[in-house]
Computed example of a mutant assay.
Amino acid sequence: MTAPGSELTLGILGGGQLAQMLALAAIPLGVRVTVLEPDPQAPARLCARHLCAPYTDPAGLDELAACDAVTLEFENIPVEALAALEGRVPVRPAGSLLARSKHRAREKQALREAGAVTAPFEVIEDEGDLHGALDRVGGRGILKTSELGYDGKGQARVNTDAGLRAAWDALGRVPCVLEGFVAFEREVSLGVARSPDGQVAFGPLVENVHRDGILRTSVFPAQVPHGTPAAARDMARAVADAWGLEGLMTLEFFVLPGGQLLVNEVAPRVHNSGHLTQDGGGISQFEAQVRAVLGLPLTDWAPLLPCAMVNVVGVDGPDGQPLTPDWAAIDALSGTRVHLYHKAHRHGRKVGHVNLVAPDADTLHERLASLEPLVP
């Protein structure tokens, strides 16, 4: 196994804020990072070598193929790019895992095959699949496109057959998954990393709250029954082993009354809910992904202190002008640390986050109550 400081190189497909934070975590380990990203204003350009070219650019892919390993910061990488790298450089997670996790129907089927529990679901690929599908998932559900949906996009709630048909029409009659409605108590997430030699490590179980389909706050520790974190780790390990994970992935769960867990979605990368690990003590999820991808020694990355994250999302006011967080008041709060992505304002776009740390859970929730009104 390689040790830090040995001048390793890491390629990243994508150059957004996740790539930026991966690169920042790699630098102290002596790892040089190159990102392939067509956006000339990519956030990662500030701390990594930026190849400004399409993801399928042959010259750019040649540069990545010269790295020790390649990882990714988002799922929607063209399959042509992954095919061009296959056999030339380790891509972690592998393209086969990416193909599974980016397609909701394949993902849910593979989760069940790995022993994980999911909500009831039906695959909708043609008009004939609509007949009786809503009854089979319990009479209420959420129709989601099988690919490309994120942050609440590409989905619709349905509770009648007519509503299901109308929703499928509105989504463009593309392949979808109809998920049965789940009366969950809370949403949580957990990261799992696995190195090429099979070493496994876990992040914290984080409690998440969404607003308008976008993650608003994440809090550690999650308020769940005593055995729930261990159950989440067991399920995450089973999926990581069954899928042959090399790198890091994040599982999102619904917690049912009594603590039972259902896997909702899987992201084959670091996750928005794990940003709080940057400031809670210990290593961050970003360092964990770098370590797993390059075969460096792994350790669990749960924070040492209670911590939380509030997303900063572009919001337009009634006059159409951007609403700005009260940065001075945020800076004045104890335990806060601001992380900005150097992205231009756009309504609904994630442009940063604020992490918050406290010595105990009660103080954390008091500080969080003071922080939330300062962020639109």
Results as ranks from 00 to 15, higher is better:
A267E: 12
Q20T: 10
L368S: 10
Q17L: 02
L64I: 10
E246F: 13
A232N: 03
H210W: 02
L248N: 09
L374F: 11
Q289H: 12
A110W: 11
V177W: 06
A329D: 08
T324K: 15
D319L: 02
A116G: 12
G198F: 04
F220N: 13
A166E: 14
D126H: 07
V255M: 02
T2V: 15
G274M: 01
D62L: 00
I77K: 03
L251E: 11
D331L: 15
A292L: 09
L97S: 06
T250M: 04
D129Y: 05
S189F: 01
F286Q: 02
V224P: 11
I27Q: 12
V263Y: 10
G30L: 03
V192H: 01
T299H: 09
G5C: 05
E207T: 05
D57T: 03
V263M: 08
A69K: 09
H275M: 06
G15Y: 03
R269Q: 13
A170Y: 14
K343Q: 05
A23I: 07
E80C: 06
A65Q: 05
P204K: 00
G172S: 14
D151S: 02
L323V: 05
P38A: 00
L111C: 08
R106T: 12
P196H: 06
G317K: 01
A242R: 13
R92Q: 15
E207M: 01
G198N: 05
W327H: 15
A42E: 04
P93A: 03
K350L: 06
A292F: 08
V263W: 07
R157Q: 15
A232D: 08
L85T: 14
G154M: 09
P306C: 01
F286S: 05
E366K: 03
A232R: 01
L97A: 04
V35F: 08
S195G: 11
S334H: 07
V290H: 04
T217Y: 00
M235N: 11
A302R: 05
P303I: 06
Q199S: 05
H50K: 03
R186C: 13
R45N: 09
L245A: 08
P257R: 00
G60W: 04
L178N: 06
C47F: 14
E125C: 07
T9Y: 10
L171R: 14
R112P: 15
R157D: 13
E7L: 08
D57I: 04
H50E: 06
E372T: 15
E127C: 06
Q155P: 12
P322M: 00
S101N: 13
G314R: 00
F286I: 05
V79H: 08
N311G: 07
G139W: 01
D39V: 04
A292T: 15
A361N: 15
C52G: 08
R349A: 03
T217P: 12
D300S: 01
G281V: 12
H131G: 10
D57N: 03
H131V: 12
